[in-house]
């Protein structure tokens, strides 16, 4: 027998606990306790959701395994996910704003080089103008132009070298070609666009 079993204090505590566990619970006290619990305000929905989430505790090994699996899934799938930024580097650069209407080109080598290309459109009454093209996957709201006091609208965006077909979207709905640029036919949708040749000068 160990020393702790012979300790008189421990022995007294053990005896007390044994005697209390043998006694029957007081029904009045139980009822009062239950009433108090029911009368207490219910937790908010998110708290209940968190409570519902609780489940039997996993062993440390199982918890670690779940965490490791999550990390593995994240690592394996990271390359499979194409973010909007990856799909559309121009949009990733962010639309022009009042404060910064010009998006400057970045030069990172021939394959990824971007050439600053300015778009200018004249429309005195438009509320908004944006440029759409193969360079921003024709997203109507990705590249808004900034209005100048003289009725011109402009934005400068970094584009990869090559031939790009584009158009302007006026007030979010009307798609028009650039009157200042050569026209591009559109066999697929029958709506003429414009062409810009982008290259390093």
């Amino acid at each position: 027998m160990s020393d702790s079993m012979q300790d008189p204090v421990i022995s007294r505590v053990r005896e007390t606990l044994r005697s209390e566990s043998a006694t029957r619970p007081d029904p009045v006290a139980v009822a009062r306790t239950l009433q108090t619990v029911w009368a207490a305000p219910r937790p908010v929905w998110w708290r209940r959701a968190l409570d519902a989430w609780r489940m039997p505790a996993l062993s440390g090994l199982a918890t670690s395994a779940v965490a490791a699996a999550a990390l593995l899934v994240g690592f394996v799938t990271r390359g499979a996910v194409q973010t909007r930024d990856a799909l559309d580097p121009v949009a990733a650069a962010g639309p022009a704003t009042e404060e910064f209407p010009v998006q400057f080109a970045s030069y990172e080598g021939e394959e990824t080089a971007r050439i600053a290309t300015q778009f200018v459109f004249e429309h005195a009454t438009a509320q908004s103008v944006s440029v759409v093209g193969d360079f921003n996957a024709w997203e109507a709201d990705a590249l808004p132009l900034t209005r100048l006091p003289n009725g011109l609208w402009t934005v400068t965006v970094p584009l990869p070298p090559g031939r790009h077909v584009y158009a302007y979207v006026i007030d979010g709905t009307l798609v028009v070609a650039d009157p200042r640029a050569p026209k591009a036919g559109d066999a697929d949708y029958g709506r003429e666009g414009s062409v810009v040749m982008v290259f390093a000068r």
């Binding site: 505790a57 918890t63 779940v66 965490a67 699996a69 999550a70 899934v73 994240g74 799938t77 990271r78």
Partner: peptide
Amino acid sequence: RHRVLFVALVLASVSV
């Protein structure tokens, strides 16, 4: 353990 599990689940959902 609950917290570790929670973090793991959040990480998994964000990744997947």
